[in-house]
């Protein structure tokens, strides 16, 4: 009987951590991590391609390096925005 009360106590503790609000927060945290992970895939590839192509262009025509660099940063900024929106979604899901 003593053991049963202890089980009840422990399972009560386990259940206490999973009230509906906490359950929601839990799944939100998981989704937040997933959301940011997914949001980072595309921009990661994109930024890699932008930098690679920019380096190719600069190596081919070093005299136009300044223009290429400015355009490269512009492209990176636009691509990166997607990942950052994912990051904002992460913050919103996790903490809002």
């Amino acid at each position: 009987m003593e053991a049963l009360t202890r089980i009840a106590h422990v399972s009560a503790r386990v259940a206490a951590e999973l009230t509906p609000a906490e359950l929601k927060a839990n799944s939100a945290a998981q989704m937040a991590g997933l959301a940011y992970g997914l949001a980072a895939i595309g921009p990661g590839i994109g930024i890699g391609m932008i930098f690679g192509k920019a380096i190719e262009a600069m190596a081919r025509q070093p005299e136009s390096a300044g223009m290429v660099r400015t355009t490269m940063f512009l492209g990176v900024a636009f691509t990166e925005a997607l990942a950052l929106i994912g990051f904002v979604a992460f913050i919103l899901l996790k903490f809002a």
Partner: peptide, 18 residues
């Protein structure tokens, strides 16, 4: 905080954990 605990008899009892 209220939690649901299953007793040995199989009843669902709401227990207030304080």
């Amino acid at each position: 905080m209220r939690v649901h605990v299953t007793t040995l008899q199989g009843d669902l009892v709401e227990v207030r954990v304080s």
